[in-house]
Design a protein around this nucleic acid. Structure first.
Length: 440
RNA sequence: GGAGGGUUACCGAAGUGGUCAUAACGGGGCGGUCUUGAAAACCGUUAGGGUGCAAGCCCACAAGAGUUCGAAUCUCUUACCCUCCUCCA
């Protein structure tokens, strides 16, 4: 949610900024005109209501002090009229309209963010060197299967498409990656968070998942289920409604929802671990075989709450942390500054770290995102009401970056580190977590 | 799942239809005055939101709805917490 004052004070400048995301200036201006009209109307109605209330409060005060029954009766009659008028004033409807428009406005890309869509993304950093092979390299699905790291077929049997089972050294490799990340962030002074995976509606609402993006989310409720008497689809209104978090970020933001964080607690640096559950509607294609995209994957997320002037500093910090993790594994990857149109709606600036997967070279050069590093500035904090108090209360800035997602690292690792004899070299930093194993 | 009890400020807690939410009373933290220093005492502060140039006004007693001229107080719904029973890794 952006600050409505920005639109009140300079709707043209805001429209111009949104145009960087590909919005039509004319359409945006029209929407703002409508919004400002509603806003003025809302404030007028609100003032009217408050004046009536003030008058009623005055009369009510007099009722208890009335000298005789006649005066009392007259005063009561007066307040009755006022109450009648007050009950007719309904501000909820107009407020909801304003909220709906505001909720639909994405965050404003920062000045340094390139205008335009994906094609304007810019590589800002190259990590490692592109591996070369003097034999015919295999793809990750083949390698993971032949080495017994992942069982795709049985995963389909027990769960369905878009899932996989980690088996044997595959499971240990996954575990090793997570350990490597946990140790790294802990060393850097971040606090480890393991949130519940099922969250309530309010958390989804504050994080912006509901009601607009509900179709991307798995939802549950106690009454839902096949063969259950009275089984039904989950509804928001269901007292047992929960949803499976799409990233631990959703849980971490909500940790401090509706709180005023004391200055001496800032910055708060967390890293969270959870599986990420996503429906991925319409996102499946042949190009994303194996574990490139699934309904459930593991991700460690860095998350920072800070004062606004520290935003830049911590943005650089979380990007460099994510790069450091990739570099530590010895993988070839790159960091890309996303153009405005490719930056997620809640974010003001995003750098993606993309790892190289040789078998996918034909698609965008074979680079796949393993970390998305962003600042939301005040956008998320405003919706979740997370503030701090200096001279007045102000919204904190929130920043988040994967650190990292494992499901795309395994394909990158097995493909980049494969040897002519069909084995895979274990990155040195992971060996201690794998009992010293040098090869898979 | 069953039966009770609760939710008011930083904490404890009073208030049971208007005269106590400018929140009684007790306690802790931080800052200040005073002091050679400390203690004590005193003052300020320790979570708010909306609107307005401002004075101010409105809202906030877990959340929502209702009764009433008027609700912290009465009624209903929901959430959360505690105790006991039941169940359980």
């Amino acid at each position: 949610m952006i600050d409505i004052n920005l639109i009140r004070e300079g709707s043209e400048a805001v429209a111009k900024t949104l145009a960087k995301r590909g919005y039509e200036i004319e359409q945006v201006s029209k929407m703002f005109a409508e919004l400002l009209k509603l806003d003025a109307k809302k404030r007028k109605i609100q003032t009217e209501g408050e004046n009536l209330r003030a008058e009623r409060n005055r009369l009510n005060d007099q009722i208890s002090k009335a000298k005789d029954a006649t005066e009392r009766t007259n005063l009561i009659a007066g307040t009755k009229v006022l109450s009648e008028k007050i009950s007719k004033i309904n501000i909820d409807k107009i407020e909801k309209k304003i909220f709906d428009i505001m909720a639909g406005i994405p965050n404003l890309p920062m000045e340094e963010v390139q205008s335009g869509g994906k094609e304007k993304n810019r590589v800002v950093e190259t990590i490692g060197v592109k591996p070369t092979f003097d034999f015919k390299p295999k793809d990750h699905v083949e390698l993971c299967t032949s080495l017994g790291l992942i069982d795709y077929e049985r995963a389909a049997k027990i769960s369905g498409r878009g899932t996989w089972v980690y088996t044997n050294m595959g499971a240990r490799l996954e575990w090793a990656l997570l350990n490597y990340f946990v140790d790294f962030h802990t060393r850097n002074g971040y606090e480890f968070i393991m949130p519940p995976h099922l969250l309530n509606y309010q958390s989804g609402y504050a994080a912006g998942q509901f009601p607009k993006f509900a179709e991307n989310i798995f939802c549950t409720s106690a009454g839902a289920g096949i063969g259950t008497k009275g089984g039904k689809a989950p509804k928001f209104s269901d007292p047992d409604f929960r949803f499976l978090l799409p990233t631990s970020e959703t849980a971490i933001i909500n940790l401090h929802r509706d709180e005023i964080i004391p200055q001496d607690k800032l910055p708060i640096k967390y890293f969270g671990f959870s599986p990420c559950y996503r429906r991925e509607i319409g996102n499946y294609g042949n190009s994303e075989r194996g574990m490139i995209r699934g309904f459930q994957f593991h991700k460690i997320e860095q998350f920072i709450f800070c004062n606004k002037e520290d935003d830049e500093q911590y943005f650089l910090e979380i990007v460099s942390n994510a790069e450091e993790l990739v570099r530590g594994l010895g993988l070839h990857a790159r960091t890309v500054a996303l153009a405005a149109g490719d930056v997620g709606g809640a974010m003001a600036k995003t750098y993606d770290i993309e790892v190289y997967i040789p078998s996918m070279t034909s698609i965008e050069g074979g680079f796949k995102e393993v970390s998305s590093c962003s600042t939301a500035q005040q956008y998320q904090a405003r919706r979740a009401a997370i503030r701090t108090k200096r001279t007045t209360t102000e919204f904190v800035h929130t920043l988040n970056a994967s650190g990292l997602a494992t499901s795309r690292l395994i394909p990158a690792i097995v493909e980049q580190f494969q040897t002519a004899d069909g084995r895979v070299r274990v990155p040195e930093v992971l060996q201690k977590y794998l009992g010293g194993a040098k090869f898979l």
